[in-house]
Simulated scan of single mutants.
Amino acid sequence: MNTPLLQTRDLTKAFRHRTGFFAKPTSQLAANAITFQLSQRERIGVVGESGSGKSTLGRLLLGLTPPTSGDVWFEGVNHRDLSPAEWTKFRIRTSLVQQNPLSALNPQMTIGQQIAEGLLVHRIVDRSGALERASTMLERVGLSRVMMDRYPHQMSGGQRQRVVIARALILDPKLVIFDEAVSALDVSVQAQVVALLRSLWQELDLAYVFITHDLRIVRHLVDRIAVMYLGRVVETGDIKSVYAWPRHPYTRALLASVPTMDPRMRNIEPPIKGELDATKTAQGCAFRSRCPFAIGRCSTEIPELRATGGQQAACHRAEELPRSIASELVVPQREELAP
Rank of each mutant, 00 (worst) to 15 (best):
L64M: 14
G53A: 07
V47S: 06
R59D: 02
G63T: 12
H79L: 09
G129R: 13
M109C: 11
S95K: 04
E117I: 10
G76S: 08
D71H: 09
L62R: 04
W87C: 11
S69L: 08
G48R: 03
E86L: 11
L82P: 03
T56K: 03
R93Q: 15
K89L: 15
S50H: 08
M109D: 02
S103K: 11
P67T: 10
K54T: 06
D126R: 13
D81A: 10
D81R: 10
L62W: 02
V46M: 12
A116M: 09
G118D: 04
D71P: 00
I92Y: 07
T88P: 00
D126W: 14
E49Y: 01
N100R: 11
Q108D: 10
S69T: 12
V77P: 00
G51Y: 04
Q99L: 14
I92Q: 15
T56N: 03
S50N: 10
L105E: 02
W73D: 06
W87L: 13
A85Y: 05
A116S: 13
E49D: 13
T56Y: 01
T56P: 00
I124A: 08
S103G: 14
S69P: 01
S95M: 12
L82G: 05
L64I: 10
N78W: 01
F74L: 14
R43L: 05
V46P: 00
E49N: 06
N78Y: 01
S128R: 15
G70W: 05
S103E: 15
L64S: 07
V46N: 01
Q99G: 07
L57H: 02
R80H: 05
K54I: 08
Q113W: 07
L61S: 03
T65L: 12
R91T: 11
V77N: 07
L64V: 08
R127K: 15
I92M: 15
I124P: 02
Q99H: 14
T94D: 03
S95Q: 15
G70S: 06
M109I: 09
V77I: 13
F90Y: 13
E117R: 10
T68P: 02
I44W: 00
N106V: 10
V47H: 07
G129K: 12
V97M: 07
T65M: 07
E117G: 05
K54S: 07
R43H: 04
Q113A: 14
S69C: 11
P84Q: 11
G70C: 05
L64G: 05
R93V: 14
G51H: 05
T88F: 02
G129T: 12
S50K: 12
T65Q: 11
V125M: 12
S128M: 14
G112P: 00
Q114T: 04
R91C: 07
T94A: 05
T68A: 09
G76L: 09
P67R: 03
S55F: 04
E117S: 09
R43V: 11
P107A: 13
A85S: 14
R91H: 09
R43G: 01
S52R: 03
N106L: 08
T110L: 08
P107L: 13
G48S: 10
L64D: 03
R91N: 05
T56F: 02
K89H: 14
K54L: 12
I115P: 00
L96N: 05
L120C: 03
A104F: 15
T110Q: 08
L96M: 15
L102T: 14
I124H: 09
R91S: 06
F90D: 10
T110D: 02
P66V: 14
S128A: 15
T56R: 03
